[in-house]
Nucleic acid binder design. Structure first.
Length: 429
RNA sequence: GGAGGGAUGGCAGAGCGGCCGAAUGCGGAGGUCUUGAAAACCUCUGGGCGUGAGCCCCGCGGGUUCGAAUCCCGCUCCCUCCGCCA
């Protein structure tokens, strides 16, 4: 969430910044109004409270001295003031709750250098590598759901039987391919990232901290009986690892990586891209995440993007990198880059990674701070994260790109250690 | 799931309803001394809100009271034992 103090000191700057995300400036006026009301009430409450405290101390003293009349008089007075104090406290709390609720819904300010734009059509392609979409051969023009069914490595019907549509079931070499991707990616990040295996079910507080709640509750699976949420991404548990803590600057940047299942209801996307693996309710993903000082953040954003990109390159996929425009940035995001791979059989660019910088927006929600080395001051960290990578869409692109004239699929060289000598899927395995 | 015990500052650990935002020890920072270091001694050392007076925070949320770290209720987490279990 935003720093309320900025609402007081640089309201116009915030309005201008958030206007780039399409936020109505009147939202901020409302925020300023509630903040002012809250502060006035709190001040009045504190004044009364100070009086009660002072008089209460006198009561103690007078009782020691044996002045029972003085005690009675002050207790009566204090009772009255206390009543007014409680009434004001209720009002102040209401205003405080309203303020917090609004604050949790107002998006992060985009970074200066994020490109302007209204929506996804205005995202900027900053890099493009690999064959052009037209350059693929005819045998690569088969969609992955057909390739997968023909080779017996993807069984969407059985997945649907067990859990419903958009719950894929991988078999044989198809399942092995997913496992290989996860192991390989974790090992590729092991040089600088601590591997974590976090819980996949989290408390409401964790969902609020990273920004999924309160706004996007419909997108997440909620286990009502236990009041737990199925994580939509490892970002959620990893961001809350340091929640409520004050880290030492020497610990930063703290880099974490995790492979987890991800669950998404896709409530807003009913009927769109439902074919094959393009949009599913459950998928596996390796996430990389960092806590950093504000100074470290820009370099880390580049580092995370490089890592995600390197994986796509090693898998031999055509891809492009998009600089996400202000109108398409997520609520918590200050800056994001997406990586899309080309799937020649489906004829689609598929988003397989989103690398983002959240400035101190998530850290404020999660209350993650660090103590500066020099002056010992405490301030919020910056958080950054990225997928590296999301596997079902990679699986789709890999199967389509690697399809050979005989219908088998070539195993990417990077994954050879997991395929026991086999170089193709479909023949031997 | 059942029974009991616990939660206090970076850590350990005191705390009678009022003089407790909190003793003491350790740790950390600075200083004196020293050629340097150690030891010793001295000082400082939680977070948040507020322009300020001041206010809030002793796991979290309520309550009792003139006044709550301290009493009452609910919740969470940790430990021990029993049950169940991959």
């Amino acid at each position: 969430m935003l720093d309320v103090r900025r609402v007081r000191s640089e309201l116009d700057v915030l309005k201008a910044g958030l206007a780039r995300k399409g936020v109505d400036p009147r939202e901020l006026d409302r925020l300023a109004e509630i903040d002012g009301r809250h502060r006035r009430l709190a001040e009045q409450r504190d004044t009364l409270r100070a009086q009660v405290k002072q008089v209460s101390k006198e009561v103690g003293r007078l009782r020691q001295a044996g002045d029972l009349e003085g005690v009675e008089a002050r207790m009566a007075w204090s009772r009255q003031v206390g009543e007014r104090e409680r009434a004001l406290a209720v009002q102040a709390d209401e205003a405080g709750a309203e303020l917090r609720d609004l604050l949790l819904r107002i998006p992060n300010v985009p970074a200066e250098d994020a490109p302007d734009g209204a929506g996804e059509d205005d995202n900027v392609v900053v890099r493009h590598a690999g064959p052009d979409p037209e350059a693929y051969a005819e045998h690569q023009r088969v969609p992955h759901w057909e390739v997968g069914a023909a080779l017996g490595i993807l069984d969407l019907e059985r997945g649907a039987k067990v859990s419903g549509s958009m719950f894929p079931l991988f078999r044989g070499a198809g399942a092995r391919l997913l496992r290989a991707l996860t192991s390989w990616a974790l090992e590729r990040h092991a040089d600088a990232f601590e591997e974590v295996r976090p819980p996949s079910l989290v408390r409401t507080a964790a969902m609020v901290a990273s920004g999924q709640l309160p706004k996007f509750a419909d997108e997440a699976y909620h286990l009502e009986r236990d009041d737990l949420w199925a994580i939509p991404t490892a970002e959620v548990p990893l961001t809350s690892v340091a929640a409520g803590e004050i880290l030492a600057e020497a610990e930063l940047p703290m880099r974490l990586t995790a492979a987890t299942p991800c669950f998404r209801r896709e409530a807003g996307a009913a009927g769109r891209d439902t074919r094959g693996l393009i949009r599913v309710h459950e998928f596996d993903k390796v996430e990389i995440l960092a806590y950093a000082t504000p100074d470290q953040a820009p370099a880390l954003l580049g580092e995370l993007l490089e890592r995600a990109e390197a994986l796509v390159v090693e898998l031999g996929l055509a891809y492009r990198v998009l600089d996400i425009c202000t109108g398409d940035l997520g609520q918590s995001h200050a800056r994001s880059f997406d990586i899309e791979v080309y799937a020649p059989g489906s004829g689609l660019w598929l988003e397989v990674s989103s690398v983002s910088w959240f400035s101190d927006y998530q850290a404020r929600r999660a209350d993650i701070r660090y103590r500066r080395r020099g002056d010992g001051k405490v301030e919020h960290v910056h958080t950054l994260n990225g997928s590296a990578l999301a596997w079902p869409r990679i699986w789709a692109a890999l199967v389509e790109t690697g399809r050979q004239p005989d219908g088998t699929v070539a195993v990417p060289g990077a994954l050879a250690p997991w395929f026991a000598g086999a170089t193709t899927i479909g023949s031997a395995l």
